[in-house]
């Protein structure tokens, strides 16, 4: 059962990524990326990270993807930009070294990883909440993350404003 679910989610994730890479239209690519995020969310569920799976759905499918779609709507895409030859070449040039590297690492490393069927995972949301709020756990990263989000959002608003019109008599741009 777990094997079937893993195969399904992995196929959705990798297939979505392939479609996103190869499709001619960037809108279709963005929607294929939604499949990838959904598949990864399913893999998180299989790994016992229930809270992370929900966060993945909320943030990626509900947030970042919508942000990218807004970016698509506000810019003019170049429909002839995809050159199949270039995409295939780059994919091969990236995939072959990555595959060799990962195969070497996987054969050389001695991870203290459990094999076989693992015990059922416990619900993680409550424990993660405690970890983020305890002083000797992850309270400082939590506060720093809040600070970073504030700075990033204010900065994004500042950057995304319309550029100032050129001063009179000055050069354009």
């Amino acid at each position: 059962m777990e094997r079937i679910a893993f195969a399904l989610f992995a196929a959705i994730a990798v297939g979505g990524g392939l479609v996103a890479l190869f499709h001619r239209s960037i809108v279709h690519s963005a929607f294929a990326l939604m499949g990838t995020f959904l598949g990864i969310s399913g893999l998180f569920v299989l790994l016992g990270a229930d809270f992370l799976a929900v966060v993945q759905l909320l943030i990626y499918v509900g947030g970042i993807l919508v942000l990218i779609l807004f970016g698509l709507m506000l810019t003019k895409p170049d429909p002839s930009e995809r050159k199949l030859r270039r995409v295939l070449l780059v994919l091969a040039a990236v995939a072959v070294p990555a595959a060799i590297l990962v195969a070497r690492i996987a054969s050389a490393a001695r991870w203290a990883a459990a094999e076989g069927p693992l015990p059922d995972p416990k619900p993680a949301a409550r424990e993660i909440g405690f970890l983020f709020l305890l002083k000797d756990a992850y309270l400082i990263p939590f506060e720093l993350a809040a600070f970073l989000l504030t700075v990033a959002l204010v900065g994004a608003v500042f950057l995304a404003r319309q550029p100032h019109p050129p001063p009179p008599g000055g050069e354009d741009r």
Binding site: A10, A13, V14, G17, L18, A20, L21, I26, S29, A30, L33, T36, I40, L43, L47, I68, G71, L72, T75, P77, D78, E81, R82, R86, V87, L89, V90, L91, V94, A95, A98, A99, V102, A106
Partner: peptide, 27 residues
């Protein structure tokens, strides 16, 4: 799981390099 993650990493890197659109770099 590591194999799936590697495949996704390769796809993302290829997307950043091969497609000529800033939004593809983001994706």
């Amino acid at each position: 799981y590591l194999a799936v993650a590697t495949a996704l990493f390769v796809l993302g890197l290829a997307m950043m390099i091969a497609r000529r659109n800033l939004l593809y770099v983001l994706m």
